[in-house]
Structures are given as C-alpha cells and as structure tokens.
C-alpha cells in the first residue's frame, strides 16, 4: 500500500544499462540522464579497508586511468552484462536518485531494463536483483534489439520482417522482428569498447606507443571510419613510447584507423550475414526491400551504414538519434505495459 503511494510519486523509468553509457528515459519527460557507466571507489586504509563510492557517471569517467592508489575507477558492466554486482547496484541507485532529485520521498519507480538478447539467465537475474536493490518497485526486462526497434520507430507490430542492428559499447545485437516478437536474434560481444581496444593495439603495434582508453575513444569519435572515404582525416595524439618510456606525440589518419578496425567490423558484418541466413525467407524478403536499421552508439561510426550496405547488398538506414533508441523504446514499452500486457517483455 505504502509503496503504491510512493509509486504514484515516482516516475516510471526505462533504463538502458549499457556497458559504456547508462541512459534513463522517464515517462512524460523523455531522456533525463545520459552518463557513462563508471563508478569510482575509494578504499582508504589499505586493502581490506572500508570501500565507499567516490563518484558515479561523468565525474567518475574523468577519473578513469587518472586515479591515485586509494581510488579505483571501474566500469561495473562488461559485455552488456553485470561484471560487478555491488557497484552496478550502487550506480543504479545513484542514477535513480538523481532523476528523482526534487522529491521528498525515496523514489520507488517501476523500472524497465534492457538486457542483451545473449544474456544468460544468471546475468538477467543479476540485473533484475540489482535494480530491486537500487530501490525499484517492479522490474521488467526487455531484450535490447526489441527496445531499439521500437525506439527507432520501426513497425514491429506489423506482419513484416524488420531487422535491427544495435551496436552498443559492449555488444552488438542483431535481430529480426515481426508481430511484436523476435524471430531471430544474436548477440556478439563486439562493440565500441572493442573498437577502442583495436585502436590501442594498432597504435602499440605500429608505433610502439601506448595510449589510454580515453585517447583511443577520442581517436574513434574524431577520425575513425568504417568505409574508405574520399577525404582523409588526421589527428595528433600523445602516448607513451614503449621503448623510450617518455610521452611522445604522433599523427594518425583515418585510413590507419580503418585498418585497425577491420577485425571488429567484420565480426559485426558476419553477425548480420548470419542473421540474414537464419531468417525465414518471407521475412528476409521484407528486409531486403526495406532495409536494416542501425541503432546504438556504434551506428555513429562514420560510413558504417555504407560498409554494411556494400557487404550485404541491402539498404541500411541509421535511426534518428541512435544513442537513445533503446532507452526511448523501453519508455514506449513501459507505456504499453499498462494497456497491452507484456507482449514485448523478455522472460528471465
């Protein structure tokens, strides 16, 4: 009874608990939070001492790779699932409080969380439990590609095949949907993080220079492309020369990064090709006519649509505002649950 009253005072939330970023969509308000999934932990008095949360989100991300001994900045999500249960819970708690900042009572919202379709039962339960631990009154789970497709505005309720490719920080999900259900789905553990890693490895191998995570991400955002383009972009970066042991600056161009990204990109392309192979022919025909929709932060990689289009021979469309598609789609589903029941929801 009391929680129901508190529930009236809390907004229903749809959370895209991603490896790289956590987005929260609040009903009636839109996207209310978009922060990196990073938690900074302070542990004073040596190992075994009491741990406390130092910072969460953007503040914690600034600390990544720049922390003293007593602070550790960690990313509690890995490959789209929970790697550190306690800190995921702390992070969720922090975010849920943050979007209910102006309220007197402890928030007790209904929460819809997106899970990768490849997540195991244990991983799903861990996500559910952490949301409950963070104060959620009720937790719904939905598979990420379904949320992404709804968020992108694809007509998933029609008897027509729709294919979505959601490239997140930790995983890429490809799914074929029809009549509000998933016909085929697959998840590969390749995402933005793998791109960063590939860039770091490339630079170390070819330049003998070590760069940090943040620098690798900057290179990706600024000059990386998935398909050879006409214009060549260049960027000057700094890293530690491994043989000399001192920081050095050097220049990278987009063609080099394209080369660096070959492996992860082809991992994604082959996942899409696999999906097309597995799709029933009628739905495959629909997809061939209308195309594949790209969502997620990975869709922002320059010319990725072109790469997939050339590789598959199908039209490829980048959704509007691809970063927030999953959270927005989750929000829509949350609105539909009351009227429609839980057609879309994933089972644990």
């Amino acid at each position: 009874m009391f929680s129901a009253i508190r529930g009236l005072l809390s907004n229903d939330l749809s959370i895209d608990l991603g490896t790289a970023n956590t987005l929260i969509y609040s009903r009636g308000q839109g996207i209310v939070l978009n922060e990196p999934s990073v938690v900074a932990i302070r542990q004073d008095r040596g190992p075994g001492g009491p741990k406390s949360v130092e910072a969460v989100g953007a503040d914690a991300k600034k600390m990544l790779g720049r922390t003293p001994e007593n602070i550790t900045a960690i990313r509690p999500m890995k490959d789209g699932v929970i790697a550190d249960f306690t800190y995921t819970e702390k992070m969720l708690q922090h975010f849920i409080r943050k979007v209910h900042e102006n309220q007197l009572f402890r928030p007790s919202p209904r929460v819809l969380i997106c899970v990768p379709c490849g997540a195991t039962q244990v991983e799903r339960r861990a996500i559910r439990e952490s949301a409950v631990g963070a104060g959620a009154r009720k937790v719904y789970l939905i598979e990420e590609p379904m949320a992404a497709a709804i968020g992108a505005g694809m007509p998933v309720d029609e008897p027509q095949g729709s294919m979505v490719l959601d490239i997140g920080g930790g995983t890429s999900e490809v799914a074929v949907m029809s009549l509000n259900g998933i016909v085929y789905s697959a998840s590969v553990r390749i995402g933005g993080d793998r791109f960063d890693e590939a860039i770091t490895n490339y630079v170390r191998r070819n330049y003998g220079i070590l760069i940090g995570e943040a620098t690798a991400e900057r290179i990706k955002v600024e000059i990386a492309a998935a398909y050879p383009g006409e214009d060549l972009l260049e960027l000057e970066v700094k890293g530690r020369n491994l043989s000399e042991g001192v920081p050095r600056s050097f220049t990278l161009n987009s063609n080099e990064i394209l080369e660096a990204l070959q492996d992860p990109l082809y991992g994604i392309v082959s996942a899409v090709k696999n999906a097309l192979e597995q799709t029933p022919p009628e739905l495959g025909a629909d997809i061939a006519e209308r195309g594949i929709v790209l969502t997620g932060g990975g869709a922002l990689l320059r010319d990725l649509d072109r790469l997939i289009m050339e590789e598959t021979g199908l039209p490829v469309i980048i959704a509007e505002d691809p970063l927030t598609c999953v959270a927005r789609g989750g929000g829509r589903v949350l609105e539909m649950i009351d009227e429609h029941g839980s057609d879309f929801l994933a089972v644990e």
């Binding site: 009903r27 009636g28 709804i150 505005g153 694809m154 007509p155 998933v156 309720d157 029609e158 509007e320 829509r332 609105e335 539909m336 009351d338 009227e339 429609h340």
Partner: peptide
C-alpha cells in the same frame, strides 16, 4: 514522427497519464 506504433503509444501514454 512515428507510424502506427508511435501513434498508438502516444494515445496510450495520454490515457495512462489520466489513469
């Protein structure tokens, strides 16, 4: 700017607000 799903959702969200 969404098609059938979106419109339905918009209506539902309104009715939910009323609820």
């Amino acid at each position: 700017p969404i098609g059938s799903t979106g419109n339905a959702v918009a209506q539902r969200s309104r009715s939910r607000g009323r609820g």
